[in-house]
Design a binder for these strands. Structure first.
Lengths: 350, 350
DNA sequence: GTTTATTTCGAAAACGTTTTCGTAAATGAA
DNA sequence: TTCATTTACGAAAACGTTTTCGAAATAAAC
């Protein structure tokens, strides 16, 4: 009942462990006859190499770690799917951990992955992360780390992102193009780079259109697991504070859906009274009423790309080649739906 | 720059590897002084045990495998979250694989996990799975496997499920209680147990209420990643086939949302013309219009429970205790929303 | 027939840890 | 002092694999 080892095969064939090992790996210095014999025996005994021994010997686990802020999340679960699918193709397995947007957890988890001996890490930073020693600790072990979506500009490693600033600019411009003249912004937490960039894109679009930037129109939400409620609350507050707002660009779809729900309940017409643009293109956004105009964020592709990037670096390190860090920017697209009005004909076109 | 080992610590302190190992693990036959010395040195050198060596020696990886049909799925991602959280508490890491509802993939993935040396497997079966040798292969290695949600009755192992039949009965009864007299059912694929059970619950509710069971009112959908379209298609077909149907019990929320969308587009009023009850209670269901009456399925709890169950068995096997298989049935609840009418006063109550 | 090249195999070390068992030194009892 | 006990440590084997290196055995070349 014991698992069968190389020794077992060797004994049965009256040859050495060395020969068995080599035969199974098609070393050129083993005769065809022996190879056939060994492989047959391995098959009949249903031999499978002991991963622990292989790992120890080869100093690699064919396993990578993945840390994300939140698993129950349309975007992130799409990313997971992309990563897992691509990893499996290359014979890699993925260990998933959830930081819950907490720096402390993230730190612990990196240590955990380090002591588990993963070959690399893919990470999307927690909102609370402002220090990066845990990340550099990992990279100091000559192991690759690739950041995606929520990154830290300051850290030297490969990154897979979208152009948040540009996407936010386009989203805001769309509000302007469809007639909005006083546009609010529900931004994300203060630290994350993408939340900052989206805010900057929003601001730039206003200024480029000669519209004043008014800080009192910017509301903050953490975008954690209470996003929906945050959206409702912010919307309620906005209606109290400003009765002249006719458009909002919102950091993420779930918050936008909360806001739309609040507007619906209060009898505020979307888009006639207020237009709304979200961010991420959750599936849900296409089925709510009115359906949500939003920025499509390629989660699956981002996961796939991030793994490819990590894989490349794992290989480079293994082959003692210099690793060159990449910054890959994926395309986004504005998805026009019913939460914004039809675009007005532009002056230039008349 | 090499990772520090027990040997390194031993050399620096002029003691043996054995003593270092024992000191770090607080063996009683090492003096307090030596222990202190060793631990201090370990700390200053930032020693961390080589997981590969530990695994090899201890024959365990502190890692479990998780196979689910689909990652981008509200219910399953909730399950993942529950599993990962609970596993981390116990020092276990979770490797995730997605079967894509394919038996072939599922089989390959079990082999992969086996050769990776996971300590146990949690699995929710693919729709296509009708043979179970890959599962018994794994269990033959004296390693525990726990099934959840989509299970196979025939396999002897622990299971964490809900009472699908009862839940479906309650859902159908609710349609009857609110005045529906001709009730259709969009069922899931043919093989999965839960899809069968939900169908049986639907049927029994009809018969218990002296309503005829009409097979032509049962539509099948695969409930894969095309669920939304399936819901729309089935709804369209239903409207063509039967103009007298006034209620539908639908196997899963995403399909129900597709159906409601189709009804909305065709001007069929929900719930006035047709009432709809879904299954799972995706978050989305609370925000679509009309909001969806559905069965709440405790994903997070199911994940948590499944891991606990697996963990118990891992311990039992390690301690050479007999393992007793459990069948844990979690509670569900009917969530009444706007896609069904108010319940009629019952005769008995008048 | 001798030398050289080629083919085929195996001994042994290494990866880093854990644990059994033995033993020397220190302590206690007599 | 002597014997028994306790305390503190280390040698060595084991986990199963991979790879280097050397050595037979065979074939080829002269």
């Amino acid at each position: 009942m014991k698992p069968v080892t190389l020794q077992e095969i060797a004994d049965r064939l009256n040859i050495s462990v060395t020969t068995v090992s080599k035969a199974l790996k098609d070393y050129p210095d083993i005769s065809k006859k022996t190879k056939a014999l060994v492989k047959e025996m391995a098959k009949t005994l249903n031999y499978r190499p002991n991963a622990f021994a292989v790992n120890l010997r080869n100093r690699e686990s064919k396993t990578i770690g993945l840390i994300i802020p939140e698993i129950v999340h349309h975007f992130f679960s799409s990313v997971i799917k992309g990563i897992v699918a691509q990893a499996e193709k290359k014979g890699y397995l993925v260990i998933i951990l959830q930081s819950n947007e907490s720096y402390e957890m993230e730190k612990k988890q990196i240590q955990l992955l380090l002591s588990q001996g993963v070959d690399g890490i893919l990470i999307s930073l927690a909102n609370g992360t402002a220090e990066y020693n845990h990340l550099t600790d990992f990279m100091d072990q000559k192991k690759p780390l690739v950041m995606f979506d929520k990154i830290a500009k300051i850290i030297k490693c490969s990154k897979v992102i979208i152009d948040d600033r540009k996407a936010a600019y386009i989203a805001t411009q769309h509000l302007i193009d469809t007639g909005c003249r006083r546009i609010a912004h529900f931004r994300g937490a203060l630290l994350p780079q993408n939340s900052i960039d989206r805010f900057l894109g929003y601001k730039k679009a206003l200024l480029d259109n000669n519209m004043p930037y008014d800080p009192s129109l910017v509301y903050i939400c953490e975008c954690g697991d209470k996003s929906f409620e945050e959206g409702k609350m912010n919307a309620r507050q906005l209606l109290k504070d400003h009765n002249d707002v006719d458009g909002i660009f919102i950091n993420t779809d779930m918050v936008a859906i909360g806001a739309i729900t609040e507007f619906n309940e209060q009898g505020v017409k979307v888009p006639d009274d207020i237009s709304v643009v979200g961010f991420s293109n959750w599936f849900m956004s296409s089925v709510i009423s009115p359906s949500l105009t939003t920025i499509d964020q390629p989660g699956y592709l981002m996961g796939k790309t991030a793994f490819k990037c990590l894989y490349k670096e794992i290989k480079q390190i293994k082959n003692k080649q210099p690793v060159v860090f990449e910054k890959i920017v994926l395309d986004t697209a504005l998805v026009k739906r019913k939460s914004t009005k039809e675009a007005l004909p532009q002056m230039e076109q008349i």
